[in-house]
Amino acid sequence: MSNTTPSQKSIAMASINRDAAVALIDASIAAAKAIGIDAAVAVIDATGNLRAFERTDGAPFLTVDVAIDKAWTASSFGFPTHVWNDYVTKDPKVAPLAYRPRMVAVGGGYPIIENGKLIGGVGISGGTYQQDQDACVAALEKLGFEVPA
């Protein structure tokens, strides 16, 4: 063990602010409506905590937890949720992650990236995985966030 003490004991962390989180909710609801689905939308901050949430009147109640967990999954490692499906089904060393509480490995969750930094996650639930995924991409692009593949 080293006898030296680091001079700094914390790190600076970028995280989505309230105004951007609410704007992303509004853009996501508009994108879902344009696609023709009722949906729940969640925005998680960089620490994995819920920052903003909305559920349209016609969205089933199960969409609430699924949207939140999609956002959480996407923000955990900075990968869109649809890529987790390949990870947990094709790699036996990663497959046990599929059994983690809150892990969602279907489309509809994206990390929120600004200037190359992960600042949160967004999750949409209400349609097919592709509809949820498309609504996420449309909302992120509308607000100028980076959209990973």
Rank of each mutant, 00 (worst) to 15 (best):
W84P: 03
F53D: 00
R18A: 10
I37W: 05
L62H: 15
I44K: 01
E146C: 09
P80L: 05
A98M: 04
A74G: 09
R51G: 02
W72A: 00
P6C: 14
K33E: 15
R102A: 08
R51K: 15
L24W: 09
L62F: 07
A139G: 13
L50I: 05
F53P: 01
R18S: 12
I68V: 11
F53H: 00
Q133E: 15
D69I: 02
A39R: 01
R55H: 04
A32L: 14
D38Q: 13
Q133T: 15
A42I: 10
P92G: 03
K93D: 02
P92R: 01
S2C: 07
I68P: 02
I68Q: 02
I11R: 10
T5F: 11
M1F: 05
C136N: 13
D57R: 12
D132N: 15
K33P: 05
T128Y: 02
D86Y: 00
W84Q: 03
I37D: 06
T63S: 13
G127C: 08
A95G: 07
V66K: 08
R102F: 08
K117V: 06
F145S: 03
S15V: 09
I29K: 02
S28D: 07
S7R: 09
I124S: 02
G121F: 02
G48Y: 04
A20L: 08
T73Q: 07
Q130D: 14
I44M: 12
M103H: 01
V22N: 09
A139P: 14
D134Q: 15
E54F: 07
P96V: 15
I29Q: 09
W72E: 03
A14K: 06
Y129F: 09
A34G: 15
V147T: 13
K70E: 04
G107Q: 05
A98W: 01
E114A: 11
V106Q: 09
V88M: 10
I44D: 04
A67P: 03
V88Q: 06
H82P: 00
K142G: 02
P96R: 08
V83T: 13
Y99T: 13
P148V: 13
L24F: 14
I119F: 03
A39V: 08
A21V: 01
A39E: 07
S7G: 04
I35Y: 01
S75W: 01
S2W: 06
K90L: 09
T128C: 05
A138T: 09
I68N: 00
K9S: 08
S7W: 00
T73C: 07
Y129A: 15
Q130Y: 08
S7T: 12
R100A: 15
G121T: 08
A135Q: 13
T56L: 02
P80K: 06
D134G: 00
K33V: 11
R100F: 14
P96F: 13
Q131D: 11
I124H: 05
I124E: 10
I112F: 04
P6V: 12
I37G: 09
F79V: 10
A34R: 14
A52L: 06
